[in-house]
Amino acid sequence: MKNYVRFHFAYVLPILTPQRFLVLCLLVLAGLLSASVSAQTMPDDLRSLSIVGGKTLPETAVTIGKQFLGTPYVPHTLDINAAEQLVVNLKAFDCTTYLETVLALSLAWQDLTDKQNQAQLNVLFRSYLTRLRYRNGVINGYASRLHYLSEWLRDNERKGLLKDVSGELPGCLSVAKPVSYMTTATYRYPHLSDPAIFKQMADTEAEISQQSFYFIPKKKLKQAEAQLREGDIIMLTAARPGLDMKHVGLAVRQGNRLHLLHASSEQGEVVITRYPLTDYVQWHKRLSGIRVARLKGTPPQTASRPQ
């Protein structure tokens, strides 16, 4: 036994780098917190959720989003299964799963004919969550998940769920940015150790890299702020090479300024930024600006509030 133990550690330690050990710990934690359920099961969190719909879809999204304030931030909650499947987790979020959950609940609530029918709400919620999270709304392996927010936005606009309005805002610029983050940081993504999945992701990155998009640089953000609306989907563009967007959340009004409602890795939970959105982006050196999407069915803005 002693010889076995010595051999075991001598063999494992050189392979288990600090980065891989961190990812392993996060995956274990994600598994413990996950509320992954079958299609026939309604998570207890959904039963206890008190949804109060707003007059508009964005208003409903903000109302639902605020109910998750204080929910822990945990990355990699979708990577707990060997085979890709829909994961429903209302106990822990990263920034993207938080947004997807809030939007799916809002869209489901809008379509719900009987607001007291929780079983119907569960079915609609899971359907919208699948549509939002996967390319063409179809689960077909790890690479079918919309990992990059650029593709997430484009795919969900094509589905008719939302609209990219970045190009309509003052100060916008059109750019094309090559992405390669996932395939150059494979230690963060254990599934990419499979050569077939790696190739699929590399092909996806190559396609995204060829597509131009509009964004508002941080130095122009003050110009665009008056045109932003509560409930807008705010995607924070990354300054670093190889990555399109670094973060995402919802615009919420605090007083006469818009702030960001988001799952924060820095604060470890769902929060509303202490500072207005414009100041928040300016303060973060790793951000280059924003992209803005709007849920379909958002009414036209009749008058701008003072900023």
Rank of each mutant, 00 (worst) to 15 (best):
F198N: 07
K218T: 06
D194R: 04
S193Q: 12
L236K: 03
L173V: 15
K220W: 02
I208F: 02
R229D: 02
Y181S: 02
K218S: 07
K177S: 09
A238T: 11
L221T: 09
Q227G: 00
F198S: 08
F198W: 12
R188Y: 11
K177C: 07
S193A: 13
L236T: 11
I208M: 04
P178R: 07
V175Q: 11
A206V: 04
F213P: 01
L228T: 07
K218G: 03
R188N: 14
A224P: 00
A226C: 07
S166N: 09
I208E: 03
E168M: 13
F198A: 12
A238K: 05
V179F: 08
I234S: 06
T184I: 04
G171T: 09
E225R: 02
G171Q: 11
Y187L: 08
A239P: 01
S166H: 08
L228I: 06
P195M: 04
E205Q: 09
V179E: 11
G231I: 02
D203G: 05
T183Y: 08
L169N: 03
P190S: 10
L173T: 13
Y189N: 06
L192N: 05
A226S: 15
L192C: 08
Y181E: 04
S180P: 01
E225M: 03
E168A: 14
Y214H: 14
E168W: 06
Y189S: 06
M201Q: 14
P178W: 10
Y187I: 04
A238P: 06
K219M: 09
E230V: 08
E168R: 12
T237K: 10
K199L: 13
M201T: 08
I208H: 00
R240G: 00
T204W: 01
S174I: 11
I234K: 04
I197S: 10
E207D: 12
E225K: 02
T237D: 10
Y189P: 09
S193F: 15
P170W: 06
R240T: 13
A176R: 15
S212Q: 13
V179S: 08
A176F: 06
P195H: 09
I208W: 01
A239C: 01
P217M: 05
F213H: 14
A226R: 15
V165A: 02
A185R: 15
V165Q: 02
